[in-house]
Structure formats: structure tokens, C-alpha cells
């Protein structure tokens, strides 16, 4: 399994990487600064299980565009997506609710306790 952090904000990625590494030592973490590069990586490794934390507001391919692009291929991939955004706009939350493959809508900064639950429950469920 691989944890992907997709966010154009480097400081946020740094802080989240730090939280995840302290919580899950040894877990491979990859950081992408836009959706396109992340999408390319996922599609290139369909056999790998990914836990994705996706920011919405990004250059090149924002979070919405990423979700739109991955939706058709979602069944061929082994991916759990969690939107992790600074937006507290309920409309953004509503939109992601309509996408079944989006496991949750999280507000930054990432809470390490929430992370525990994802690792134990959700990824196991997928398997």
C-alpha cells in the first residue's frame, strides 16, 4: 500500500507527511503537486493499493478534475480517496458526497486520530 498526498501547498504536505510518518512509520508516502501527476502514477500501478488524500484547489488539474478523470476507471483501480481541503464551503462537501468512491471529506489540517480509523477500517474494507 502507498499513501499519496496530492496538494500544491508544500508546507501542508510537509506537515501531513510528518503526521503520517509519525503515525505509520515505514509506510511509503508519495507527494504530488497536481492531480495529473498523481492520476498518472495511480493508473500506472493498478496492482497497488493507494490511500489518497486529495486537495481540491490545485493548478493544472484540480481535485474536481482529478475525481472526474478517475471516475470511469475507478473499478479497475485499488484506490481509497479522501478529500482533504481547506474549504469549509458546504457546497464542496455536497459535491463530493455525490461521488461514492470519495470516502470522506476532511478539513485541513489532518487529524492524526482520523488517520488511525482510515488505516484500520477503510483500507481493510476495500480488501
Amino acid at each position: 500500500m502507498e499513501i499519496l498526498l496530492i496538494d500544491d501547498d508544500a508546507i501542508t504536505n510537509f506537515v501531513h507527511q510528518n503526521i503520517i510518518e509519525s503515525k505509520l512509520p515505514g509506510m511509503p508516502i508519495k507527494i504530488f503537486y497536481n492531480g495529473q501527476t498523481a492520476l498518472d502514477h495511480i493508473c500506472a500501478h493498478p496492482e497497488t493499493k493507494f490511500l489518497v488524500f486529495l486537495d481540491l484547489n490545485m493548478p493544472i488539474m484540480n481535485g474536481w478534475e482529478f475525481l472526474e478523470a478517475i471516475a470511469p476507471k475507478i473499478d479497475t483501480l485499488q484506490v481509497n480517496i479522501h478529500v482533504l481541503t481547506s474549504s469549509i464551503d458546504p457546497r464542496d462537501h455536497q459535491i463530493t458526497d455525490a461521488m461514492p468512491f470519495v470516502r470522506s471529506f476532511l478539513e485541513k489540517p489532518l487529524d492524526e486520530n482520523v488517520l488511525d480509523r482510515f488505516i484500520s477500517d477503510k483500507i481493510d474494507q476495500r480488501e
Binding site: I11, T12, V15, N18, N57, S86, D89
Partner: peptide, 26 residues
């Protein structure tokens, strides 16, 4: 405005919140 508030303004704000959280824990 809403977009600006939830993305443009809150983005630096959450960065601050994350940094503070990191500093508090480590």
C-alpha cells in the same frame, strides 16, 4: 467571495493551523 473565503483565505489559515499543530506535538 465564497471561493476566496474557503480556498484562498483558508488555505494560508489551515497552513498556520497545521504548523501550529506540528509545533505543539513535536
Amino acid at each position: 467571495i465564497a471561493w476566496l473565503q474557503s480556498h484562498a483565505i483558508r488555505s494560508p489559515l489551515t497552513r498556520i493551523m497545521a504548523l501550529l499543530k506540528l509545533y505543539q506535538t513535536k
